[in-house]
Structure formats: C-alpha cells, structure tokens
Design a binder for these strands. Structure first.
Length: 233
DNA sequence: GCGACAG
DNA sequence: ATCTTGTCGC
C-alpha cells in the first residue's frame, strides 16, 4: 500500500474530536491535490475494491471493511475487516474524518493494492470537492470513485427510469458528478470522481460493477461485510 | 430564524 | 449509520 496515510491518522487522533476548523483547512489543502482526470481502461484494471464503514453496537468504535474482486472475472478475492476508536462525530461534509482512519486500516490488510476503489460516499460532489472518496484517493494515491445513495450538494436534471440513464450534477457552475440509474424504477445513486479518474469514466465503472442491485457490487459486499462483523462482535 | 444535511 | 416485518410491485 502506498505511504501517506499517517498524516491523516495523526491529524485526526492528535486533535480534539470536534476541531472542525482544522478539518476544514485540511480539506482545502487536499482539494488542491485531487486529480479529476484519467480513464482506467477495462484491460488495465485487474482488481477492484469496495470499502465501507459501520459503527460498533456500543458506538465507541468504527468498523471498516474492504472487499476485493478481480477483473474482468469479477470474482471475490478477499475480505478484510478492521476496527478503530471513533475519532470524529458524523457531521455532513466531514464524513472522511470519521470513516477514513478505519478504512485505511482495513486497506492496509490487503496483500495486493487495488487498481480501483469504489467508496460509499461522495468524491468531488462535495462543497469543497473533497468528499471521502477523493480524500481517500489523495492520501493513498489510488484511483477512487464515490458512489453515494443520497445528495449532499449540487443539483441535477431529472433522468429516465431506465437502468443506465444518467445526468450531470452541477454545483456553483462546476460539474461535480452524475446521478445514475442503476436499476429500473429504483432511486438513482450519486456518482462522482474520487481521484485519478474523470467523471465519465467514474460513471462507466459504476455501471460495469452493478449487477442486480441498486449499489455496485463492491460497495454492497463491503457494506455486508461490515454489518456481519458488527453483528459478530 | 428556517431548511438542508454523504454515512 | 441504526432501529426492524411484512408487503407492494416488476
């Protein structure tokens, strides 16, 4: 795994859990490092990971899970779970400060570095263009895509009810992401570039990894892994 | 003051 | 996120 996640972990653990000012300053700095270009072609992607986090039943620790699939066979290669203390409360726009520490720990357990990571949350579809997917991409140097179930900021046109339809999302003049219909007659998901990938490629990769459910398989599997771990602990 | 508000 | 069973619809 590439180095670089220590700064984030230290930054979060060594400061009061409610220092939002510092968190915001870090976001402003990291936002300048996000690369919103790149088009990872299918034949260059060998592994795809999905990451997600949940909270322990006593609400004192975060559970992070990463699920790895190969590509294009799209078979399950491995699942890693991890726990870390809760360092930050849930505050819209600051989700990464709560979930990234444990997600990074889970990623560290993988024996192979994923070529692409799909995150449960937004990428650039964030007020400062640094949602959890982009944040993860910048600190790891890996290709990431954000796929959220709900809107955080910005607006977009209506789209048809057919799977595969999508529309651009705009916020203050910027195209920050897309609303994508992943299943017929089911509410769409919000897809945005995380890091080292452009918006169109992000949408295509999400559609390629969707099977029969609303969420792309990597995220669905990661979510299940975290839930199972939560129940078993 | 009144909504909006990723997970 | 999490608490939770059946149920309406394709």
């Amino acid at each position: 795994m590439p180095e670089g996640n220590e700064s984030l972990r230290i930054e979060i653990q060594s400061k009061p859990a409610y220092d939002i000012e510092e968190a915001k300053n870090l976001q402003l700095k990291l936002a300048g490092e996000v690369v919103q270009s790149g088009n990872p072609l299918p034949d260059r992607i060998c592994t795809i990971a999905g990451v997600d986090a949940s909270i322990s039943r006593d609400n004192k620790s975060m559970i992070g899970s990463v699920v790895l699939f190969n590509w294009p066979k799209f078979e399950l290669l491995s699942i890693m779970n991890c726990t870390e203390p809760v360092f930050f409360p849930y505050i819209p726009e600051y989700l990464s400060f709560r979930e990234l520490p444990v997600i990074l720990s889970a990623l560290d357990k993988l024996t192979v570095t994923p070529d692409l990571i799909i995150v449960d949350g937004h990428g650039t579809a964030h007020p400062r263009r640094i949602g959890i997917a982009s944040h993860l991409g910048v600190v790891t140097g890996l290709v990431t895509i954000g796929c959220a179930k709900r809107r955080l900021t910005g607006s977009c046109e209506e789209i048809g009810t057919e799977k595969g339809e999508f529309a651009h999302c705009i916020d203050r003049g910027d195209r920050i992401g897309s609303v994508v219909r992943t299943r017929n007659n089911v509410s769409p998901v919000w897809v945005s570039a995380g890091h080292l990938i452009d918006q169109d490629a992000a949408v295509h990769w999400v559609l390629r990894t969707v099977t029969k459910y609303r969420l792309p398989e990597p995220i669905r599997a990661a979510h299940q892994a975290a839930s199972r771990f939560r129940k078993a602990n």
